[in-house]
Design a protein around this nucleic acid. Structure first.
Lengths: 255, 255
DNA sequence: ATTCTCTGTTCTCCATATCGAACATATGTT
DNA sequence: AACATATGTTCGATATGGAGAACAGAGAAT
């Protein structure tokens, strides 16, 4: 029995499945609701949620429904502070924002989503409306293509076979063969561009980087209004993002 | 076997004990370090941390040490959004801040600490350096006394018998009998004041409120420079905080 | 008032997680 | 290089948690 992939403590897996369910749920949920949604036994859910309630991780309402609790909130503020990925990358996002005046993002792939882990923009900037925690479509912009470019061809082809390419704007590419070529190009050139394909009027650069961890696709990307990115700055911004990605990779490999 | 106080799923209890330990730890920790700190069996810790690592709740470093992970961070952002206590109280903190220009806080008691769960101040305000997540000494200011005032006398007396009263400033009260009277006065008048007792130059008001939940002491408090609080405004600010606390209590009792 | 439906709670058996011991690997010391 | 120490990993016995069934209580429908 090896350590890879095997969930050794099912109670903990169930516990976080419940927490994630309550995260997605807009309302507090009861024991039967949780049991049905996750197909767990009611007595199992009963014991887990009461344990979590005692620990302050969940709050129990008077109507016997459960919501996320304040101790989870406090626990998680520490998690953001101590995540090595966020800590290492954050200063690079700040530098990208400072030099380009674009919003800078750190994201990872999660299934068919690009999840934003961190973001830097300034008080003076035009704010891009993606926030930390948001799950953007993977097949939707430069960030997604940069993340995809880190997958093997076989996996990319499997995804493209299964999913339709959404048409977000008139510029969106919906031809799968062409899309695959764009992902490969992103891999070769180590950068992806989004010229109004996901949101009209918006331009984005995204650069994948490696952290040495298996099964983790990471990218950083810069997003702004197209008019913030004159043609003559594209090359310069591209070089900057690649330089930042190289710096990040060096940080992960010095150990 | 009743639901009260009994930890039904020990693996979950151990799991959060590990997460809290890593929160407090300034560095990543290994299996043996966690095992020693919490007096758990190494194979138990081994299984739990690898399960958490697979779930993204912990990150495993190349040197086999574990740190808090990005999924915990993302989970937590939702927790702050859905905590009923924080959601109900937040608009009242905003109103306090707007009308008094003081920094407004929501806090709860945790052992001998006052833990800040939420805070509102404005761009224009002089910033008070307490942040969300901070654990302030319970015997240290208006907020702590407001929280203490919700405990039974016996518990307060037990705490005062056991702990020394710290002298933060020349104005700090270190006489236990007098301190007990101050807590009782806070209970009777439903407000506590801090006139440079915890930090010199700082004035604070704190008002306890009830949420209907057992074993939870909650208070809201407003803090600023003493010169922001002219004598003629003390009564007015006091009435405002009491009014906010009454509004909060009404919200918790309409159900 | 009675019955029905739904949710929460309790109890018990058995499949399994925890613990202790032993082993494997890495690092430090001589 | 050899040895000592520390940490991580594995295995099996046993104590125990999860699941299923039954029960209790609350609310809705008649």
């Amino acid at each position: 029995m090896s350590t890879s992939g095997f969930k050794r403590v099912p109670a903990i897996e169930k516990c976080f499945a419940i927490l994630r369910l309550l995260t997605k749920s807009k309302a507090a949920m009861g024991i039967t609701g949780i049991s049905r949604a996750l197909r767990y036994n009611k007595s199992t859910v009963f014991n887990i949620v009461h344990t979590l309630s005692d620990l302050g991780i969940l709050e129990q309402m008077p109507d016997n429904k459960f919501n996320l609790g304040t101790d989870l909130y406090l626990l998680s503020r520490a998690a953001g502070k101590s995540s090595e990925l966020i800590q290492i990358v954050h200063p690079y996002l700040e530098e990208i924002n400072k030099k380009t005046k674009l919003s800078a993002f750190l994201g990872i792939r999660s299934g068919m989503r690009a999840v934003i882990l961190d973001k830097v923009d300034s008080a003076f900037d035009i704010k891009i409306s993606s926030e930390v925690g948001m799950r953007l479509p993977l097949l939707g912009g430069a960030g997604g293509r940069a993340l995809l470019s880190q997958l093997p061809d076989r996996e990319i082809e499997r995804i493209l076979a299964k999913e339709e390419l959404p048409k977000f704007t008139p510029q969106s590419c919906v031809d799968k063969k062409r899309y695959l070529m764009m992902i490969r190009k992103a891999r070769e050139e180590r950068i992806a561009f989004d010229d109004e394909e996901y949101i009209e009027g918006i331009y984005a650069f995204a650069v994948p980087f490696r952290t040495g961890r298996q099964n983790l696709q990471t990218a950083l990307w810069a997003v702004g209004l197209k008019r913030q990115v004159p043609k003559e700055m594209v090359q310069q911004f591209s070089e900057l993002l690649k330089k930042m990605a190289s710096g990040i990779e060096a940080r992960f490999q010095l150990r």
